[in-house]
């Protein structure tokens, strides 16, 4: 995030922010996919934050996430399964929602270290974004459940699916960067 408060983004930044926020909301429209024998559906929406980060860089991705979460908070049903309002934030998984902002920041900062990031860097960036989300989400969950072991155990089921999402996000981003170069630091 920039150091000083920004008055407002110029048109291109504003448009990217708005469209990416909508993009992550649309990811929530896809039904969960069941992978293998695990009974946990893999929802694609939570790959949105680190995908946004590795696509357009930290600043724009963070603004997109702030916008999306603000719209969810005022009552638009933009989270997967048509959830919205203030309830998702105060619930036990609220930390994972707020962690999206850190996730976009971390993945974006790593990805934009290279002008033309290759797959290994994108993988690293997306993975770091995922870890950042867990770093916010698990302590929050632990406050709710009152025990670290419950929080960690409860989160473990999502790890395999989330790792798959990291790989998909990095693959998609590397192909998109080849098709539309120069997106990471903003077009000038």
């Amino acid at each position: 995030m920039s150091d000083r408060p920004r008055a407002a983004a110029p048109a291109a930044d504003l448009a990217t922010t708005v469209v990416l926020a909508a993009f992550i909301a649309v990811l929530g429209l896809f039904p969960g996919v069941y992978v293998g024998a695990s009974g946990v559906p893999i929802v694609v929406q939570n790959m949105g934050p680190f995908l946004a980060g590795v696509l357009v860089g930290a600043r724009r991705a963070v603004f997109a996430l702030l916008l999306l979460l603000a719209l969810v908070a005022i009552g638009l049903p933009l989270l997967s399964g048509g959830r919205g309002g203030l309830a998702p934030f105060v619930g036990p998984s609220g930390g994972f929602l707020l962690g999206w902002i850190l996730s976009a920041l971390v993945s974006g900062l790593i990805a934009q270290r290279a002008r033309r990031p290759g797959l290994p860097l994108l993988l690293l960036a997306a993975f770091a974004g995922l870890v950042a989300d867990y770093l916010v989400g698990i302590p929050w969950l632990a406050v709710y459940t009152g025990s670290w072991s419950t929080a960690v155990t409860g989160s473990l089921v999502f790890v395999p699916g989330d790792l798959a999402k990291v790989v998909i996000a990095a693959l998609v981003a590397s192909l998109v960067h080849r098709a539309l170069p120069g997106r990471l630091v903003g077009r000038t």
Partner: peptide, 9 residues
């Protein structure tokens, strides 16, 4: 994703 970014443009 490509068409999404084009729409942003």
């Amino acid at each position: 994703v490509v068409r999404t970014l084009r729409h942003a443009d």
